[in-house]
Design a protein around this nucleic acid. Sequence first.
DNA 1: ATGTCC
Length: 468
Amino acid sequence: MNGKQITKLGFERKAIGLALAAATLRERAGLSRDEILDELRGVQANPDVFLGGVYDDLAADLIALRAVQEARASSDLRPAPLPYPVWGADLIDPGAHTQMDVAMRLPISRAGALMPDAHVGYGLPIGGVLATENAVIPYGVGVDIGCSMMLSVLPLRPGALKTEEAKALLMRHTRFGAGIGFEKRDREDHAVLHEDTWDALPLLGHLHDKAINQIGTSGSGNHFAEFGSFTLAAADTELGLEAGEYLALLSHSGSRGFGAQVANHFTRLAQDLHPTLDKSAQKLAWLPLDTEEGQAYWTAMNLAGRYALANHDLIHARLARALGETPLLRVSNSHNLAWKQQIDGKELIVHRKGATPAAAGQLGLIPGSMADPGFLVRGRGNPAALASASHGAGRQLGRKAAINALAKKEVQAYLDRHGITLIGGGIDEAPQAYKRIEDVIARQTDLVDVLGQFMPKVVRMDTGNEDV
DNA sequence: ATGTCC
């Protein structure tokens, strides 16, 4: 028996040595060369049944090799992206299209859509909707898992709250910024902190304290809490509101450090699981849902989603309590999350990364900038958009570009023109850094109906790197 | 988005 004969059978590298070693043992046991070659062909064809015997090492090596090859093949991108519809293509930069094209080449992708506020993000573009089969992409959800909106419509006229009082309330009852939590004596409790889910994974147990410390707060970047006037053009029986103008509170917050650490942990895990994934798609690495890792992400992601809404919950409860009022209406929606959704009779995983769920009849909130109107919308359940809409106006200038291109003076002039009082806020969040919300709304009339409009008056955000 | 470390 020699290496040449074994190589001829198609064994490679390490397997050649292992096959040779096993063949030698079989020769000693008295088998002929042809009998041994037959056995080796058998191991090749079906290594699993040879585990534990004289061919154990060889069989194990072949099985490992097969797994690597299968993983590699299952990571291969399609040669061309699946087609996907785009709303407001004239508002979307080429980079977002390029990112969506890569996403639609993933072997797990089944359908997708681009919303009119789309712009470049990590992995999937912001404003991207992606339906996959039996897989979830951490960067298809985003770093701020469960990032969401909440609106409270109060039984007061907009003029009932003076600017100075609104400022004082926001200063007392909201907290903004990376790493920030309420001071211990002002910290509140919430049912989400008492869920059994925190014990389901070591990672969640580890992050529980951070979640407790940061409950009821808002983050940095585009997160905000603002008082303004909500205008309902026509009485709406479902909303239970008469037409008119109301004082309202609108907030944008997420899952804070807790969600960010969940996102980073599973993004790393997903990338480790797909070492041969094409570099262009590296940030779109996924977790199969039928694996322990995939299930763990699903559990953690949904907890982060509930935690983010709990933050809004406390923000709105504190401010309503301080005003001594009970809201007439409260609406909320997550816009960074993945959902199980039936599509053409099949259960798919629909990722919305900066996209508002817009199933038929579903209420949603699409904010503009700090100085522009936001909209209460009702979804139309458009199947081509996978029942989605934009999550806001969307950036037209990146953060750095905004800081370079805009002067404090012109931002302040914009705020003055719109009668906005701003606490905190950075140049990178200037209204001029965003697309015109009116244009974005006009591009999605087949995705949502506009029910009401919210105009901000007193806005609180984190103090950015470049203050306004 | 995040005490900016995978």
